[in-house]
């Protein structure tokens, strides 16, 4: 894993602070894309067979594997529903987001 895993936003106060060549300094983790979501995935772990398919097909890499179980990272999940569609056991349901 690389070191660019900081979710701080980089802001330059003056031109002198900018690097001389165009290069990326930080990751996009500051951008919490979870706010884009209308529906959110909820995993019923009692039915989960640990096939890893939800992790494999997540376009936002927002499903992590923690202690051999899939866990949704709601900070970044955009609510596309690919995981619920692809789950072979249908143990992921998309529920309306409460505001």
């Amino acid at each position: 894993m690389s070191k660019k895993k900081d979710d701080k936003r980089i802001i330059f106060n003056s031109e002198q602070e900018m690097p001389l060549v165009a290069m990326s300094l930080g990751s996009m983790l500051y951008n919490k894309t979870g706010a884009w979501r209308n529906i959110k995935p909820v995993i019923d772990l009692s039915k989960c067979i640990k096939c890893g398919i939800c992790w494999k097909f997540c376009p936002d890499t927002s499903i992590d594997i923690v202690d051999e179980w899939p866990v949704v990272n709601y900070d970044y999940c955009k609510g596309c529903g690919v995981c619920a569609e692809e789950c072979p056991e249908k143990c992921i349901v998309m529920v309306e987001e409460e505001k």
Binding site: M1, K5, M28, K56, E68, Y76, C80
Partner: peptide, 24 residues
């Protein structure tokens, strides 16, 4: 049961990117 992982675990793309929902 162990988690079935068929792809390399290394993740070089981070979350928070600007793609549309469900981008291929």
């Amino acid at each position: 049961r162990k988690m079935t992982i068929t792809l390399p675990r290394e993740e070089l793309m981070s979350s928070g990117h600007l793609a549309c929902q469900g981008c291929g």
